[in-house]
Amino acid sequence: MSSSPAPFQTIRTPDASPRPTKIHADGVKVIYGTKQALHGVSIDIGEKSVTAFIGPSGCGKSTFLRCINRMNDTIVGARVEGKITLDGEDIYNTDLDVVELRARVGMVFQKPNPFPKSIFDNVAYGPRIHGLAKSKADLEEIVVTSLQKASLYNEVKDRLQEPGTGLSGGQQQRLCIARAIAVSPEVILMDEPCSALDPIATAKVEELIDELRTNYTIVIVTHSMQQAARVSQRTAFFHLGHLVEEGPTDHIFTNPLEQRTQDYITGRFG
């Protein structure tokens, strides 16, 4: 018996001047054991811009984010269907190497998770395992540039050998961003990167995200609509495992076409 429900239609508003597509998703479904978390999500993510995923908790936005660099592989019993391409290359193709993929698509997590190593070693970790630095001086340079790009260098330059776990929450999160940058990824996925931070630290991280978009494609999942409005160019609204609406951020926030989007951004549920 297969009376499949009517196909879900995502409401899309294109940009005035569309960017080249970096990531393209087509009918992505995720099933955890017997529970379906995503019901066919299709979206194009433009390069060198910030795309925000918003929606109430449990709507599938983090799940979708984790599909983009195949972090769902690490969850036992998770199954992904559909197609995601990065620069036209299918990332779920069996030939594609997941290690290489993750080197190209970095990730920053909800809670800052510095390794219990020194600040330097935290940032140097990625370049070291990937063999990106030819010499010690090279490595130092990568670390310094990454920390600079993460706007953390000035705060920690005198204590690079101290443990990364000793930094404040906001500094830890910027350290994790620096760690991700050090591998020189093309895409950076951020899973609610500010949810564990205080407002001042949040502001710094948001500022950083805005700077980073000149060089990187950034996808950010956030609970806070203000944050989405502040940092992103495009916004996608998820609800109950569906991508309901996506479009330019100002358009979504000022003139949503879907009732549920409107309800959510005006705070009727969430």
């Binding site: 993750r102 970095g106 997590f109």
Partner: peptide
């Protein structure tokens, strides 16, 4: 996750 996310 942090390490795997970096491609280790």
């Amino acid at each position: 996750d942090g390490s795997l996310g970096l491609g280790a």
